[in-house]
C-alpha cells in the first residue's frame, strides 16, 4: 500500500489520474473501518487532509459551496441558517468524534443508501462539483446516486465541493435508528419547503438501493398546496392531504429486510416521518409567514 499526500487540489487530481483505483481518505470514518477490518486493501490511499480548501465553505447568493471535507460539526455550528436540513442531518451523524472528522464528500463518495446527508441534499437541491485532470463538472444530486454504494463519479474524478441551494423556507430531517444516539439509519427522511418556487422536495434514506426522492408524493403535495391556496392562505394542511403524502412517500420506498430493520417497518416509518416533518415545516412556514404579515 502506498500513502499519497497531495498538497494541493491539482496534485490530488494528477495522482488520481495516475492511480484511478486510489482510495481518497479525508475524515476516514468509512475508509479506515474497512481497512481496520480487512475489508479493503487499496494499492494507494490518498490523504486529502492537506488540501485546506476542502475544509472551507462559501455562502453565495443562491447556494452554499461546501468543501467536500467540511466536518459535520462545522455544518451544525455555522450553516444552520443557510442549510437547516443538512445541519439537522449532520447532528444525527454517529457521534461528536465522528462529526468532527466526517464530511459530506465522504458520504457522497461512499454513496451508501444509509448516508445521513443524502436525504437533506436531495430535499434542498444540490450539485456535486467533481474534478479531474480533464476539468470539472457539476453533477445534479438527482443524477448522482447510481446504485448501491455507486455514484456518477468517473474513475479519475474526485469530489471537490457540493453546491447546496440555500434554504428559502423551513427544512426538516428525521432519522430512525434503534438507539438514541450513534446509530446507522434504519431509514431517514428529509423535507424542504421552497416557498419561492412553491414546491416541496423530499429525500429518503436507507429505504431503497439508493437515496431517492419521493417524486410522486412531491407532485401530489405541490398540486394539493396549489389547489388549496395553502401557500397564500396559511391554513394548516388538512389531515387527508398529509396522510396521502405520507402514503406516497412510503410507496416511494423500495427497501430490503436486513439486520437493522424489516422492509415493512421502513415503509411504515418513512410514512410517519413524512407526515411529521411536513407538519413541522408547514407550521413553521405558517408562523414565519404570519410574522412577516404575509397572511
Amino acid at each position: 500500500m502506498d500513502f499519497l499526500r497531495p498538497a494541493s487540489w491539482e496534485e490530488a487530481l494528477a495522482a488520481k489520474a495516475a492511480h484511478p483505483a486510489a482510495v481518497p481518505i479525508a475524515g476516514g470514518t468509512d475508509v479506515m473501518v474497512e481497512i481496520n477490518f480487512d475489508h479493503r486493501r487499496p494499492e494507494h490511499l490518498m490523504d486529502l487532509n492537506r488540501i485546506g480548501e476542502l475544509g472551507e465553505w462559501e455562502v453565495g447568493e443562491e447556494s452554499v459551496r461546501l468543501g467536500a471535507a467540511v466536518p459535520y460539526t462545522a455544518i451544525m455550528e455555522h450553516l444552520r441558517g443557510e442549510l437547516p436540513g443538512l445541519a439537522l442531518a449532520s447532528h444525527t451523524v454517529a457521534s461528536p468524534q465522528i462529526r468532527n472528522r466526517g464530511g459530506v464528500g465522504g458520504n457522497l463518495g461512499t454513496a451508501s443508501p444509509a448516508g445521513d446527508a443524502h436525504p437533506a441534499l436531495l430535499a434542498a437541491g444540490a450539485e456535486v462539483e467533481a474534478g479531474s485532470v480533464r476539468g470539472s463538472r457539476l453533477i445534479p444530486i438527482d443524477a448522482f446516486y447510481t446504485g448501491v454504494k455507486r455514484n456518477a463519479l468517473a474513475a479519475d474524478e474526485l469530489i471537490r465541493a457540493v453546491h447546496i441551494r440555500k434554504a428559502d423556507g423551513p427544512q426538516q430531517y428525521s432519522k430512525v435508528g434503534t438507539r438514541n444516539a450513534m446509530v446507522i439509519a434504519v431509514c431517514a427522511f428529509g423535507l424542504a419547503l421552497h416557498p419561492a418556487s412553491r414546491t416541496v422536495r423530499t429525500g429518503i434514506g436507507s429505504a431503497a438501493p439508493t437515496p431517492v426522492r419521493a417524486r410522486t408524493a412531491e407532485e401530489f403535495l405541490n398540486a394539493a398546496l396549489d389547489e388549496g391556496g395553502f401557500w397564500d392562505n396559511g391554513r394548516s394542511i388538512t389531515p387527508s392531504v398529509a396522510q396521502r403524502f405520507a402514503e406516497l412517500c412510503s410507496a416511494a420506498c423500495n427497501p430490503v429486510d436486513d439486520v437493522r430493520g424489516t422492509a415493512g417497518y421502513r415503509r411504515h416509518a418513512v410514512g410517519v416521518l413524512a407526515r411529521r416533518t411536513l407538519a413541522w415545516t408547514w407550521e413553521s412556514y405558517r408562523g414565519t409567514a404570519a410574522a412577516e404579515g404575509g397572511v
Binding site: F3, I25, G27, G28, T29, V31, M32, V33, I35, N36, L45, D47, A94, S95, P96, Q97, I98, N100, R101, M182
Partner: peptide, 21 residues
C-alpha cells in the same frame, strides 16, 4: 468509531484515533 475509547485530540479536536490513518 463506535465506542470512543480511542478518543484523542487531533489539533485540539476530539476524534477517534482508530479512524485517522
Amino acid at each position: 468509531g463506535e465506542c470512543g475509547s480511542c478518543t484523542v485530540r487531533l489539533d485540539d479536536v476530539p476524534v477517534c484515533s482508530c479512524l485517522v490513518a
